[in-house]
Each structure stands twice: as C-alpha cells, then as structure tokens.
Design a protein around this nucleic acid. Sequence first.
DNA 1: CGTTGTTTTTGAACAGGTTCAAATCGTTCG
DNA 2: CGAACGATTTGAACCTGTTCAAAAACAACG
Lengths: 225, 225
Amino acid sequence: MTYSLGVATAKAEETRERILDAALKLFRQDGFDQTTMRDIAAEAGVATGAAYYYFRSKEELVMAFYVRTNDEARELIPAQIARWRDLRKRVRAIIDTKLQQFAEHRRLMVALVRIGIDPKHPLSPFGDETKAMREESIEFFRLALDGSTPAAPKDLAGDLPRLLWLYQMGVILFWMFDESRDQRRTRALLDGTIDLVIRLIQLSSLPMMGPLRKKLLAIVRAVED
Amino acid sequence: MTYSLGVATAKAEETRERILDAALKLFRQDGFDQTTMRDIAAEAGVATGAAYYYFRSKEELVMAFYVRTNDEARELIPAQIARWRDLRKRVRAIIDTKLQQFAEHRRLMVALVRIGIDPKHPLSPFGDETKAMREESIEFFRLALDGSTPAAPKDLAGDLPRLLWLYQMGVILFWMFDESRDQRRTRALLDGTIDLVIRLIQLSSLPMMGPLRKKLLAIVRAVED
DNA sequence: CGTTGTTTTTGAACAGGTTCAAATCGTTCG
DNA sequence: CGAACGATTTGAACCTGTTCAAAAACAACG
C-alpha cells in the first residue's frame, strides 16, 4: 500500500523522503522531462542508483506524490463531506479538494497519465496495483451519496460512486491540460457539469426513465470488466 | 501535409518508404517498445541516422502510418457514406472503416496516444500540427449528416460533426485497449451507444429540450478552445 | 570484540533514442 | 570534364533511464 521498496529502517525511510522531496522540487522547478534521475540523486545527495533502490522508475516518483495526496485525502475529504448534505456541494468539495492537492504539481501529473492510460501498465489508475487506492477514492463518493439530498435512487447505489469517480477523473484530466489563467476553464466546466450530473441522477429516478436507465447501466457494466 | 522531412528526390522517397515499411513490420512483429531504431535501420538497410533524416522521432513513424490510413480514408469513407441514408449506418460505417484500417496495428496506436494525450505535443490529435487531418476527419461526419435520416437539427449542424468525431475518438481509444477476442467488447459498446447517440440527436430536436440543449452546447463550446 | 547476514549505498556499465559533423552522392553549370 | 552546391547517408558520440556487482554500513549473535 505504501509502495516502499526497500525501506526497513528509519534512516532508510528518511533517505527515501529526501529523494522524493528532491524529485518534487526539481520537477516543479524544471518539469518532469527536463529533470534527470542524476539531477535528482545529486539534489538528494545520494548516488544515482539509490533512487532506484526506493523507486522502480522515474514515474514512480510521481506516483509516490500521488500516494501522498491520497493519504492526506483520507482526512481531508470526509471532513469536507460532513459540512453539507447537499450532494452537489459534496461532490464539488471532493473534486475541489483533489485539485487543490494537485495544484502545486499540476503539469507533473501528465507524466502519470502518459503511462497510466494503458491499463496494462502497473501504475495505471485502472490497473491491479492501484486498486486499493482507487477503491478508497470511490468510497468517498459513496460517503457523499450517503444521506444526501437529493438521495440517489436505490438501484444506482452500486454504480453511482464509480460513475462519479469517473467523472472526477475526467475533470482532473481536463484540468491538467487547462492552461487558462487559474484554470478557470475547468471551473467553468465544473460549474456547468456538476449541475447536469446531479440533475441527471434525479431524472433517472423518474419511472419513465426505467428502460433508458437499464440500457445505460447495461452498457456501463459491459464496458467495465 | 504529407509530413515529409527531407524528401526531394524519387530515390529519397523510396528510402523513406523502405524505412517506414521496415518499422511497421518490426512494430507488428515485436511491438513498439521492443523495436529499436537500430533494428529498424538495419531492417531497412540504412544507417541509424537515416531514420532521423526522414522522421523526427520513433513516434513519428507511427504517425506516418496514421497519415497513410488517412490518405486511404479519403477514398474509402465517402464511398461508404454513399451506400446509405440512414445516419446510424453511416456513422457506424465510418467508425468500422477506421477500425479496420488500424486493425493490423491495433496496439501500435497506443504509442501515439501516450504522447498525443498532451495537446502540447506536436503529434497530438488535438494540436496544431494535425489540424488539417483532424478537420478532414470531422468533415466525414458532416458528410454523413448531410441529407441523412434522421436529419440533424439545424442549429446543431455546426457542432455535431465535431461531437461525433469525439465519439469516434473515444471508441477507438477503447478499442485499442480492448483485449477481448476480436475486440467484441468494442462491438458491443458500438451496438449499444450508436443507438443512444442517434436517439439523443433526435431527442434534442424536441422543443422542450431547448434550454437543456443550449446549456450543453454552451458547455461544449466553453470546453473547446 | 569479531563474525556473519542483511540492508543500504555506490558508481560503473548498459541500452536505446537522438544528434551531429563529416563523407558520399547527384545534379547543374561553365 | 571538373567545380560547386544541395540532398542524402553514415556512424560515432551524446544523453538519460535503468541495471547490477561490489562496497559500505549496520545489526545480531557468539
């Protein structure tokens, strides 16, 4: 879960942190592609090989950052959810929190997407190795739906968290490449679509929507494994 | 348009083709990552540097394949469209044709996606350099909508081709990673969603949908540049 | 303390994408 | 023909991610 390759002692843990911090500093300063593993090792004051003792690849350094934010989210997000009952606000709060966490390293996440888009890659957000984190993230949306207004239709309870998570992933993807000032385009997208998403959930409760909803769910389930 | 770096003579054009063919042969045989530029050059009977005289990068070899299919599509797709008036069938024919063209090198396209997902990358399907090809692909959908049944609502005529193109890109993306036998999952996705897409277009013609449609279009337009 | 086994660290070596200066080829012109 | 010039081709060199065998540091044990 903590993706620690060779950490057995406290000093090792410290070295690992030092390498990760050096990497993040340089990534932020010069960008992912411009930063070499030799740079990172030098900045951390270790030999080149040391980085590979703790991280399997350059991308795994980015993944380690991602894991770090996930650890933080475990505290942050439930607290946010507890502040409202309104589903719209809850979902918005989850996504806003995520974006805030990534903000400092926005462009960095591209490195993760590049390899992660292939579900076969170990670091893919859709793959096996990241399953625990993924499920945890999905769980937040289950929590948000729990006792919210509007309430989610019962028979969607199983799929809705996953669907909202997918929506979140889409927004984050858009945001990573959003070069508008302060990423206001993403804000606009959020403002426009959250409303739509919630409205859609409500609409789908209407009896007349039964067949359509069934069809959609069938497709969604067929698409997922 | 033809992405030819240094081709001025007929012999050069021939060398270029030889390198591209060698590359495609090896990519198909051993996969993109397993094939080295040195392999490709050797297979083509030229020095390593020669490949870089004609192609700016390893990925550009894949792009050259993509361009090739696009050149073919210019003949194939209008012929397909002319076979029906039914919009569903026309759209399906466009997408099926594309998939058929890529079929032989399905996994190869992943290499293009990896870098192309970043709109900043020169080879991105969303970037400047590929604009001509992109517009051409979108044009096919305009052609498909032209005089089709059902007819598209007038005020959607401007955006619909681009939206259908996006839908196509999504399907192709899914297909690239679809490891089910004969990619039947993708077929299932197509069977399920084409219907939905066409139905949605029809629905949006209903007067009651006015406000919703406006809202959706506003979002779509805000998201695009 | 010395021995032994494990964890951590080192830096050289390797691999493959890419660059580049120099050589070769081909064409044009006097 | 021979000089001049651009187009093409070469292969060595460069850069950077990654691997690996050996050294160093450390812990446990007698």
